[in-house]
Write a protein that binds this DNA or RNA. Sequence first.
DNA 1: ATCAATACCGGGAACGATAACAGTATAACA
DNA 2: TGTTATACTGTTATCGTTCCCGGTATTGAT
Lengths: 367, 367
Amino acid sequence: MNVLSLTAIAICHDMRTIERKTMNRVSPKPMTIKEIAREAGVSTQTVSRVLNDRPDVAKETRLKVQHVIALYNYEPSAVARSLIRQRSFTLGLVVSHLNFYGPSAMLVELDQQAVKQGYTLLPQFIHDAQAADAQSLKRLIAQQVDGVLWGMPSISDESKSAVSFSSFSVPLVSVGDPVHGARQPVVIDEQAGARLATQHLIEQGYRKIGLISGPPDWSATIKRQNGWLEVMRAAEMEVDMRHIVQGDWTAASGERGLYQLVEQCPDLDAVFVCNDQMALGALLAAQRLGRAVPEALGLVGFDDFPESAYFWPPLTTIRQPWAEKCALTVRELIRLIEEKLENGVSTTTETLLLPPELLVRESSRRV
Amino acid sequence: MNVLSLTAIAICHDMRTIERKTMNRVSPKPMTIKEIAREAGVSTQTVSRVLNDRPDVAKETRLKVQHVIALYNYEPSAVARSLIRQRSFTLGLVVSHLNFYGPSAMLVELDQQAVKQGYTLLPQFIHDAQAADAQSLKRLIAQQVDGVLWGMPSISDESKSAVSFSSFSVPLVSVGDPVHGARQPVVIDEQAGARLATQHLIEQGYRKIGLISGPPDWSATIKRQNGWLEVMRAAEMEVDMRHIVQGDWTAASGERGLYQLVEQCPDLDAVFVCNDQMALGALLAAQRLGRAVPEALGLVGFDDFPESAYFWPPLTTIRQPWAEKCALTVRELIRLIEEKLENGVSTTTETLLLPPELLVRESSRRV
DNA sequence: ATCAATACCGGGAACGATAACAGTATAACA
DNA sequence: TGTTATACTGTTATCGTTCCCGGTATTGAT
């Protein structure tokens, strides 16, 4: 590639010339199994047998049918299939806060895993987190999903009561907040993660450790807060309300949080920030306050946001095994579905607790 | 909230105690319209009329039916509906790279807009970007989607040929890369954005401006690169291959990119980085090279990543009107669908070109 | 009292596929 | 020759809903 070729591309890609196209293309209706059958000179049943790889079709017939299918680029209607089979090979997912790293990372992980197991993911995005209720589940059921993943990371007022969750016609497991009626096959031990973070700060010699927490309706907030509290107590450190401020997971709230914290508690020498975005805000605040990190202020985040390693200074944080959690949860849901299909009953399994991991980078290593 | 209450929460939320639950709940099959009809003492036809708010039902009958529906928490099967109506009120979306900010932001925007217009979004996530082909479209068609949004931000080898895209049974528009057979109702003028960014650096007095670009198979890369090139040419600045390095949108590649750039071109005094994550990496590299930003190195990013304002120094960048683009594109797709349903033909519309916007922050303002 | 118009309701077909069953033809064996 | 097994194929019913039609009851006008 040289600069001359760049110019050529520049011209042909110039978007300032308004593009015109006609759209009057014919839109051929998709073929049906009946038409394929007619073309191939067999019954629809035989076509169906070919589609589903059943054994009792003569080799010659099968080839003929396959030929016609390929010729017309035919694809059987998933809708008609779901209706007759009472099965869609689809997993519903109720999720919100995709603008945050955690939920969005889990979405792709869940989809990947579902696809790998021969299922399709049907996500239902909740834009108003308070409005996630049984309604969203009903919509998924109407779509004939075989099972549902509850991925809401926070507790809405509706779902707190959640009467109708328990009497539910398909298996339901949670990858997000605990919810009445849904099992959590896999849970990450965020409390232990918070302990790791706080412990690390103590080991580095920090003594007055504050907390910037998340919104109180997220269970993650509670768990991380409790982990911090436990270690502080165990180390017999001073803990009171002046050491805690509440954020909303955004960098903006992290910045505000640190200002507030140093005001409430001037001799503060470190902070455990409950996620990395807020930690970024706190880093900016520290910079503006003239407090060098980590020399004059220790800092640990949570989540291992992909950009955290490139903050200045690089952020020490807690990595959560999301991929493993998602993979195992999907696998468990599918197990429940297929087991229910056989026995009519789903068995009990225990909750698996996965440990997070501390990633030490410069921001919390005293020099 | 005081610290004592925190302890209480700590105990009841302690996840180290393994949770046990039995799952042998009854799973009542969802009700059908037939059962509702029987319960209400009317025909299924009448129930259907009530469900669809048709006028010719006696007020009394309607109330009775509605009561039964509410009683059993009945929801009509979307699958059966789609089958008979030949219409699903669902829009397919083919998309990849959800780990990046852009695609993920567009996903929520598209969904929000679709829902607002009474449709449901059915995303099909492509995990291997090279494998996005006509196959993914066939799968969506099998699901009876009424239209498809092509959201792939890069060009795969498959879709480059893309023979089968044009003869397609439902309307298809693109919110991502241009693709043969799909219109782009709305396009963001990224080239103009890149011109704004580069122009701004020149106005701040920088003279040797490098470029850290993206992967070559993203049209965004080409456009941003061309915008930079145009302005450099117009300002009669020196431009050759030593001023360009290629990244992959990640912060890691941005860091590497800057090292490489200053090596190739030691008198460099500014960089236009094609997205904000790479800009973050470049900021780290600058820090490590001992080049203060913006005094000793000007820097402008692209995309307005939510965290950019909290980088150090805060990042000057280009904001793209994604929300507007998504909203208008969805609206246009729905227009095409409904028009086609009436006339059988879709009309031509011109492509709308939206201008991005320069956000000046400290990283590119010389002091 | 007759007729037409209106309001309301139900019966049957259909959407596109599969399940269950019932055939037909050929081969194999007694 | 008859019986039975095997290989293959077609017919009918079905999933849950809506569309198209026809039917009855009520009203109002003549």
